[in-house]
Design a protein around this nucleic acid. Structure first.
Length: 298
DNA sequence: GCCCAGGTGAAGC
DNA sequence: GCTTCACATGGG
């Protein structure tokens, strides 16, 4: 029996917009009446209002676990926040990021997206991923009147693409890494479906074997696709946050930093990392008008 | 023009 | 071991 074209879920401590636009996933677009995205082979539109989430799909579904699992609707955020260290930086980050959540993404899409993320701004990653999906993804059903949409291209599909064609998607030097990794995943040499059952260190070691995957990208996949909380991705922003908020701007060795993170941020260190990342990145800077005025006046 | 962006791998000391 | 550099591309 086919299900309905929409569903409603209760939302508690959940900032949907912040979560979908916080640089974990790169395919969500605000359309004026909700967030439109593609999960697996399903087009979906999400709208959060007054502690209710409305989800709309293009074709009837009976089982909604693909969505509730992705959004981690069953997670009690209060329990997570309770484990954060009680220090000034974390209090500020939590206050600034009320309702920020971690998603549980499909591993291949997450891995491929973060291979494309290196030294790119989030907006540019979104653009590259969009082109990649449009050119190599399978079309998915959309409600009438909506623009076409595509699934994320499979490892096998990308493995069959020439490097020059990938470069034409604006990904530059990352094309070689994406192609090599797609081949290893497509061949079964790397089995992403197995990693979730391994101890986090083993799963990380497997990811680190892939070309274009270092500690940072490995930790992003461990955290955003598998939910491993000991994973603590350190990018330029998190490094900036840690240096400014915890180390009075001193330079810190990265290996030492990971030991500090594991010790200081507790059992949900990965979650804490996302709060620091979003906090430091969206911190209110001097307004443009104020700067323009200063410039004009000087 | 310049610096920077959810980095990585390889070469040089 | 650690430091430095190339790698594409676009935004501010």
């Amino acid at each position: 029996m086919p299900g309905p074209l929409f569903n409603i879920f209760p939302l508690l401590d959940y900032n949907l917009s912040m979560t979908l636009s916080s640089g974990q996933a790169f395919r969500w677009q605000w359309c004026g009446q909700g967030w439109i995205g593609v999960l697996g082979t399903r087009w979906v539109r999400l709208q959060a209002r007054e502690e209710l989430l409305t989800a709309e799909v293009a074709e009837p579904v009976a089982d909604w676990h693909w969505l509730t699992d992705y959004l981690q609707l069953g997670l009690n955020l209060t329990e997570v926040l309770r484990t954060f260290p009680d220090d000034e930086p974390m209090r500020a980050a939590v206050a600034a990021c009320r309702g920020l959540r971690l998603l549980r993404q499909e591993p291949w899409e997450c891995l491929a997206s973060f291979i494309l993320s290196s030294t790119k701004q989030i907006v540019q990653i979104q653009q590259i991923v969009a082109v990649l999906c449009e050119r190599y993804g399978e079309p998915v059903a959309v409600p009438s009147g909506h623009p076409p949409a595509w699934g994320f291209p499979s490892p096998a599909r990308l493995a069959a693409v020439a490097e020059a064609e990938l470069r034409a998607c604006k990904m530059g030097f990352r094309a070689r890494y994406l192609l090599s990794t797609a081949r290893r995943v497509a061949s079964g040499e790397c089995d992403l479906s197995r990693l979730g059952q391994l101890p986090v260190e083993h799963a990380r070691a497997e990811l680190l074997k892939l070309p274009g995957v270092g500690r940072k990208i490995a930790d992003c996949v461990l955290l955003f696709a598998y939910g491993f909380q000991p994973a603590f991705p350190v990018d330029v922003w998190v490094m900036k946050a840690l240096r400014e908020l915890y180390f009075s701007r001193r330079n810190v060795n990265e290996k030492w930093l990971h030991r500090f993170a594991a010790k200081h941020f507790g059992p949900n260190a990965g979650y804490a990392q996302q709060y620091l990342f979003h906090y430091i990145r969206t911190r209110r800077l001097p307004r443009k008008t104020a700067r323009a005025t200063t410039k004009a006046g000087s």
